[in-house]
Design a protein around this nucleic acid. Structure first.
Lengths: 345, 345
DNA sequence: ATCGTTAACGCAAACGATTGCATAAAAAAG
DNA sequence: CTTTTTTATGCAATCGTTTGCGTTAACGAT
């Protein structure tokens, strides 16, 4: 005998009325006498009645639940996005079902499946690094299923997505390094199949070109996992193995940037004097490490908020997906700290 | 016309059989001819049939969904716990519904309510800092509702909980400082209403006493929010305003410890020579800040795993809650780094 | 006295799947 | 060729709610 399991029928029985009357009374429908409404509500209270959302979902084929699929929870950026999602969803009366794919395509697909089984009203997705083919998404889109992609967005024509301006963020970061007098700027790039990596690299390249600097291919090293070990190795390589030593590094993510910092320290290179470093994501630790790390801040919370409110608008038909033709782009902010400032201004 | 909306009835119609036959065929029940089974499965495949989990939930009054209520998502420890929860739940075929309370009691209660409405099979809870009265939990427990508390555990006799050994963790951290020759060890404490704070403070106190040191009340400063600003202020106060200056700080959490480090740097105190510092939680940044911060590592992922597997066992009646009389306690690990080592060993 | 109107409520189907109990047809036993 | 058993399938209720439509009784109008 579990709690809250009193049903409309129980109330009906207690008062010798029909379930329809109870249902209507609870919702203040017209055509029910005030007296009955009063009694019904009283008994509902007494029995600790709680509407069965499952029954409601079945009836309305709406679950008031949205599904979130992300690569991993333990990641500063994603956790802030989740936070934004949860805030908006719960304030608008929706539940959030969460799964992480751990960057596995198989899990992404199975998550999609079980969520569909659960009559999810819509999806919020940032796909895995393994995902290169978007058929499983476009099928759903074709059927008019509400989906909003965020951060990592697929190359599907009619997909709705919310992203940050990776290009501009990278451009600003690189320009900042250039303005600080660094001229041989290397780039620790992200995995090639993610658009965000490509965009950041593009921002890096164009900033160099627009400032009259040359792009050296050997200065661009891919760090697909984004760990500090990777950043460490890449930086050691840059310092030791290359003829033209770089004097600054723009990293695709903060962890790699930290790896770069550690490598510099190990090699006795002073930051920012001999090596300027800028990261990407503005993880919490950026401001507290030594020297503090300049980084491009991604508005994770805002992304979550925006993506969710768009999704809910689509679900509630307040927003026609066809009116959205381009991805929503949120601005980044370059946070300049000690690791990249060597000019007294 | 949404995808996956083909129902058992659609399959039945297509083959001119009854829904019961289809249902049984899909589940390989005996008493259905192999021929029929084959056909049913074929059509199911063709129509992209996906069982409606909602209908199933209603029928079985089981939702195969567990509810997670935590103070906040953007927190290294909690995000690792979530990760552990999600792994176990999804591997055992359960969904995870997530809400954060932002440390508000009101939101905690309303989350509880909507989850109950959604026929959640069980709860995983770490309650808010505002929560001092546990009636809303004990009501559910009395009704036999499966709940596992983690990290922050309530003082209810029959509550099942998974926690870490905060006392021992704090004891070890403090002992380590003592062994390093620090004698005037201060403590940045957590909010008084959380058991974990009390336990950590107790570990700190007893370590001092057992090593023949005195406990100075003025050395214990409460940092209820656990921010680095708070830690900064508390440490400045300790350094400047107190007659007997401490030579080490054991902080209730890493952020406060970082605040303490910054305050020491601002005051020109060398770490670890003039001030030893140990934190709690082992946030990611501990190993990459300068000097690296010694910290007590909490096995967040394991907590999530353990709590979830216990909850699912209870839900599936594989585990009788009455056989569990004491909280499950997981061991911490003291990670010794530079911030607290001044003896060459 | 009869008719129309309105207020207040009940009936029953529907959402999708499961399942105990019938039932029909086919096969085996007599 | 019956009778019994087996095999394969269908019926209908159920989970908790909602809702279109019908029903009843009371009331005022004619």
């Amino acid at each position: 005998m579990k709690i809250g399991q009193a049903t409309i029928k129980d109330i009906a029985k207690e008062l010798n009325v029909s379930s329809s009357t109870v249902s209507r009374a609870l919702k203040d429908y017209p055509g029910i006498s005030d007296e009955t409404k009063r009694k019904v509500k009283e008994v509902a209270d007494k029995l600790n009645y709680r509407p069965n959302a499952i029954a409601l979902s079945l009836r309305k084929s709406r679950s008031f639940t949205i599904g979130v699929i992300i690569p991993e929870v333990v990641h500063f950026f994603f956790s802030t996005v989740i936070s934004g999602i949860e805030e908006v969803a719960s304030s608008r009366g929706y539940n959030v079902i969460l799964t992480q794919t751990n960057e596995s395509l198989a899990r992404e697909k199975s998550s999609l499946d079980t969520m569909l089984s659960n009559q999810i009203d819509g999806f919020l997705i940032s796909f895995s690094k393994e995902t290169t083919d978007f058929d499983h998404f476009s099928k759903l889109l074709d059927y008019g299923y509400p989906i909003v992609f965020f951060d990592r967005i697929p190359d599907i024509p009619n997909a709705i997505s919310v992203m940050i301006d990776d290009y501009q963020g990278a451009y600003n970061a690189t320009s900042h390094l250039i303005e600080q007098g660094y001229t041989r700027i290397a780039h620790l790039a992200g995995p090639k199949n993610l658009n965000i990596s490509k965009e950041r690299e593009r921002g890096y390249r164009e900033a160099l070109i627009n400032h009259g600097l040359k792009v050296y291919p050997e200065f661009i090293i891919e760090c697909p996992f984004g760990t500090n070990e990777e950043g460490f190795k890449a930086t050691e390589y840059l310092i030791k193995k290359i003829n033209l030593k770089p004097d600054a590094i723009f990293a695709n993510n903060d962890m790699a940037a930290v790896g770069a910092m550690l490598a510099c320290k190990a090699e006795g290179l002073k930051i920012p004097e001999e090596m300027g470093i800028v990261g990407f994501s503005n993880w919490q630790f950026c401001s507290i490490i030594e020297p503090s790390l300049s980084s491009v801040s991604q508005p994770g919370f805002k992304i979550g908020e925006k993506a969710t409110s768009m999704l809910l608008d689509m679900i509630e038909k307040k927003l026609d997906p066809d009116t959205i033709t381009a991805p929503i782009v949120l601005e980044t902010e370059l946070l300049i700290r000690k690791s990249s400032v060597r000019l007294s201004s």
